[in-house]
Every structure is written in C-alpha cells, then in structure tokens.
Nucleic acid binder design. Structure first.
Lengths: 369, 369
DNA sequence: TTGTAGGCGTTATCAC
DNA sequence: GTGATAACGCCTACAA
C-alpha cells in the first residue's frame, strides 16, 4: 500500500533494502540500462514498500532537462490567454511535461523578470506572447543561451524562434469588406497604436497606403487596423479618420470613453469593428448604455469570439481565433525543439473562423452601393 | 553589458575570475553569510561580466526549497479558475515564487497524476480544487509527506490543509429568498448531484429537511441546492421536485438539454436559478433559443458573475464570488505555511457580493404573496 | 548484468 | 572573513 513516512525516501534506501547498488536501483526505477528480472522485482518491491518517489530536481540537475516549459502570458485571466494556456497544458501533460506560468501584463519590465525566473528554473523551453516585438534583447539572449522559444500571437522581429499566429490583416480586411459590402461607409474602430513611433493614426494610414510598411513586422492590433485600411482602399471608399479612435493598450476605461464618444457623435458610424475581446466587451457595454439596437442602429463585427456573442439578442458576428489549437500547436512545436528538432524556424499561421451571426445589416437610410 | 555566451556559466567560473573561492562567490551571489565589501565588488563584477545566472535547481536540491507552488485547477479555461489563478500568480510573483500549473478536468485520476508530478518536482506547497472531497488518500499522503495544502472552493473532509471558500449555502439561500419574496413560487434550478450516494434529489431533499446533513461536508453545488431547499422551507413554500433538473457535472450538452426541457414545460418555472458559470451560459442560450424575455417571461439569478451579465439587455442579477481575492488569499495562506507557520488550520470563507441588476421581476399574473 | 566512483551547481559546515 | 570539503539525490561512465 506504499505508506510513506517522512517524505525523504532516496534511491539509496531503496537500493539498500533491495540489497543492490544504487546504480542498479537507479536503472530499474529510472528505466534505463539493463537489469535482471530478478532485481527489477526486488527493487520495485522495495520502492513500493518505502513509498519511493524520484526527486526530479536531482535528475534534472544531471540530465540538464527539467521537462518543464515556461509560459509568459499577458494576462491569464483573459479568455484569450486562458484558452491558449489550456492548449499548451494539454499537450504538455500528455508528454509528461510541466508548465511554469507567469503573467507579463504586457509590461516589458515584468516580462523581463518572468523570463529570468523561468530561465533560472532551467525550463526546457519558453512559450511567450512577447510585449515588445522590436527590441527584445532578453529573448535573443535566451535563444543564444540555448532555450528554444515559441512565440504566440506576435512575432519579435528577427528572433530565432518559432511562432503561432493568425493572419490578422486578412481577417480584419475580410470583416471590413463585409461591412462595406453591406453598404456601410462609416465604420468605426477603436485602434491601439500605443507604440507606433510617430504616434498618430495619420502617419500609419499614409504608410499603409504607400505600401512602405511590412505587415509581418507589426503588432496584431496594428495588423487589424492595416486590414481596415486595405479594405477601404480596395473598395475605393475614403476613410474618415475621426472614426478611428486611438487608445492606449489594454485599458478598459480609456476604451470605454473613446467608444462612448465615437458612438455619441451626431454623425456616428453605422457600423463598428472591435479589435479584441476587451474592446468587444467595452463596445457592448457602451451600446447598451446608449440604447442602440443591433443591427438596426449599428452593425457590429468583433475580433475574438466570446461566449455571450451566441446568445446576446441577434447574435454577434465575430472572427474566432482557434485559441486552444494555437496553444496546442505552440506546445507541439516546443516539444519538437526540445526533442532536438533543429530545422528551420516555423511560423504557423492558423486559420481563424468567421462566425456569421445576426449583428450585421444594411445601414438605415442607406442606398446599397 | 553582460553578454552570455554558451549558457553554462557556473559559480565556479565566477569565483575563478574574481580570484576567490566558490564559497565566497556563493556567499555574495546567494546573499548569505558575510563577505568583505572588497570581495563583494569583485565577485559581482565577474558575475556581471560572465553573465552569470544561478541554477535554481542546484540551489533547491540542497536547500530543499524550490520556491515553486503547484496548482491543480479544474479547468484553467473557465473564467472561474482563470481568475483564481490570476490571484495566486500575483502574490506568488510578488514573493519570488513560481507557479506550476495543471488541470484535473475534475477527474480524480488526472488529479492523481498531477499531484504526483508536482510532488516529484518538489513544489513547496500545493493549492488545489480537489475533485473528491470524501476520499482523497493522495492528498492526505501529500500532507503527511510534509507538503502543505491549501484547498480552494471545496474542502476534503478531514484533510489537514487550509481552505478558501465562500458560503455557498447562504448565498444560494439569499438568492432564492429574493425570488420568493418577489412572488415566485416556481423556481427552476439545474442541480449537480453526480456523486450523491443515493443518487437522487428526493433523498437529498429529505436529508436536508430532517437536518441530518452537515453542509460543511458537501460539494459547493450541493451546498447551493441546500440553500435552495432551506429558503423554500423558511418561506413555507413547497418544492416542486420536477423543477430541480439533475445533471452530471460540467457537461454543457446535458445541462442544455435539461434546461431546455425545464423551460419548455407548459407549467414552466417563473424564475430560474443557475448554479455556476456553465449553467448560466447554457441558460442564457436556452432562454434566447426559446425567445423568453427577461424578466417578463422569466426571472433569473445566476451564481457567478460573468462579464456579459452587465450588458445583456436588462442586466442579469448575480452572485459574484471574489475570485482573484480567493486566489490571493490561498497563495497568502500557502506562503505563510511555507515560511513555517504551523498554527491551526485556517478555513477562510470570503464574502460574495450580490450584484443586483434587472433580471428579477414579479411573476406575470401572480399575486405578490 | 552489476557495482564503484565521479560529478551536476549549489549551499552548509567547518576549520583557519 | 575566508576557503577547503562534504553534502543534496540522482545519473553516467567505466570497470568488473
């Protein structure tokens, strides 16, 4: 029945009780090398009797492998990261790996500390949603130090690590195109351009339009704005820059204020495109507060599919990222690297699905063309 | 600038470069024992120059402390566990602790494996939402082996571990009382009694009414049904057992079927009480599908407050558990134990808040009293 | 097939 | 204050 007494049963004691050397005991318990059936039995019995549990620390110290993968999420409380983490944890567990979790809150300083802690704990690999895609010396250093990295959602420019993302630009373009096709010419959007160098929407718009911007090197939120602009350009419809509300990253209050302002204008947009789970919730909040009807007063498409979008009145049309699949893919890539795969970097782009529901209609009083 | 080259910079190399012994280097780098200012400087400089990072495995092996706490959640993808984990991770990080995460999916077998893995990785303590509150030998064994345990949401009978919960029975009783006070005499509820020995609602009801059941020894979902029964008893209103839909644990489809059935009856309830986040979402789904208006056709109170409850039409009245606070409290209890607190077991019961919104009204055609 | 000896990178225990 | 030296628990030679 294996009753353990004082927790510290080492392989030495098992060996002693079995009447063999620690090496032999280690071989059968660790499952490596050859041992006679006879001794196997004896050692297993002793281990069982003493309630022996291997100390993975000691094993890791010598093998150099911890069978642990580190994860740096932005905020595990958000459904976005929670789902991704679920995927990661599932495949990790299936392979006997542990998951060491940290939050960065999208703060570079915090990410730095997190990565350092994980590295010191000797994780075999790092899965991370990097805060800063332009200058992440600590990640380059980690890779150089031999720690494989799989990036999620965002890609650090020039980092030698795999990645799992979705094509944000295409998905966004698709959403906006649908709205345009439905007859909407005034589509509101709350954009996040916090770290955009020149600081304003104007310059971003210009750079997209004169094709001097490589979408692959941008933050997801920027890529979504990129798609918004492209869709307008493709349809030959001018953009009213006042409909693009600019807002700092991940601030609910700011987004709320901005959205309320946008939807309160006398010439308010006839459609709204939200760029992530946070803005979607904020938008619904504002829409409810302003007593706007969907889709009569306002059409709506959201990036990221949340549970309530299925049952909230007419149903909210949304782009659904395959979050758990992304987590699974990331973990799979990671495990392959850990097992020694040193092939070229892989940049997986998973296909989001488009959940067509009831939040899009032709704008009121609009001629469809 | 501390450029590391090949990852393995050990304390020995730092010591060598600083011209001191590994012992001295260890003292300044590890921050223990005495060292002259002179040597401190020199060692730090060498460490910096070589890009030295301590190997926490080696340290842990000898100190017996990993500064890591293990967490077994039911399903990290649910907002419930995600929020709790957020709280845990925050206080852990603040104290320099890591968090090793696993999911049990409420499966005992999986929980067993998880606990074993965590223990072998030598976590300093375990925070867990136990699947089985009646027979958890592995948890008793863990405690006996010296691993402190903090339980969340549920309490294993007789386990020597702290706990953080809410008073489910009182909260539930309060909700039902409000509905009864509003004039509802037919209140539907989807109950989960999967592991209830005798297997049916009848016997549970009987045991509550003849006071032969200690609520402290029950699963949260049972406690919530307990409160439902008590509230009815207190108001002197008989319970129509057909309004208590029994369902297996954590199955969305089953809950959906059951809820649809309940709400489709010709004599359907005038109010509904959902017992957790899953049933709430399922209920809303069903309500939308059946085109029932809240609160006109059906009053609703939900256990667990979800983001959409604020902006979904009239606003859904709900009981909000202080989830992140629960996580924080659990982590705090854990850290205290790790620091050596061997006082009596603590069973924290945090106060849920009641979010009064617009989903409760008097039943149609009902005389109020 | 088995045992002996050495070491993984730290910290702990002593003398000095 | 400091430096040998012995742990920590396990694995990996290598020799037997």
């Amino acid at each position: 029945m294996a009753e353990k007494r004082t927790s510290k049963v080492t392989i030495t004691e098992v060996a002693k009780l079995a009447g063999v050397s620690t090496a032999t005991a280690g071989r059968v318990l660790g499952g490596y090398g050859y041992t006679s059936e006879d001794n196997k039995e004896r050692v297993r019995a002793s281990a069982e009797k003493l309630g022996y549990r291997p100390n993975l620390l000691a094993r890791s110290l010598i093998t150099g492998k911890t069978k642990t993968i580190g994860v740096v999420a932005g905020d595990i409380q958000s459904p976005f990261y929670a789902s991704i983490l679920r995927g990661i944890a599932d495949v990790a567990r299936a392979q006997g790996f542990g998951v060491l979790l940290t939050n960065s809150d999208e703060l570079l300083e915090r990410e730095l500390e997190a990565v350092q802690l994980l590295l010191e704990k000797q994780i075999d690999g790092l899965i991370i949603a990097p805060c800063d895609i332009y200058d992440s010396a600590h990640l380059h250093a980690a890779v150089r130090a031999g720690c494989p990295i799989v990036q999620i959602d965002r890609i650090v420019n020039g980092l030698a690590g795999d990645s799992v993302t979705v094509d944000n630009r295409a998905a966004s373009r698709n959403c906006i195109s649908q709205l345009l096709a439905a007859g909407h010419h005034r589509i509101g959007m709350i954009a996040e351009l916090e770290r955009w160098a020149s600081g304003n929407v104007e310059t971003f718009l210009d750079r997209v339009l004169d094709s001097s911007l490589d979408p692959a090197t941008l933050f997801p939120s920027w890529q979504r704005l990129f798609g918004y602009i492209e869709a307008h350009a493709a349809a030959g419809i001018p953009i009213d820059r006042d409909l693009i509300g600019r807002v700092g990253a991940y601030s609910a209050e700011a987004a709320k204020t901005r959205t309320m302002a946008l939807l309160s204008r006398p010439d308010r947009p006839t459609a709204l495109f939200t760029v992530d789970g946070l803005t979607s919730a904020v938008a619904m909040d504002a829409i409810t507060a302003l007593n706007l009807r969907i889709p009569d007063d306002l059409s709506l498409i959201c990036f990221d599919d949340l549970d309530w979008m299925t049952f909230i009145k007419p149903g909210i049309t949304a782009v659904a990222q395959p979050l758990t699949a992304m987590g699974e893919a990331a973990a799979q890539l990671m495990l392959a690297r850990i097992k020694g795969d040193d092939g070229p970097m892989q940049h997986l782009s998973l296909e989001p699905t488009f959940a067509q529901r009831g939040s899009v209609a032709a704008p009121m009083f609009a001629t469809t063309a």
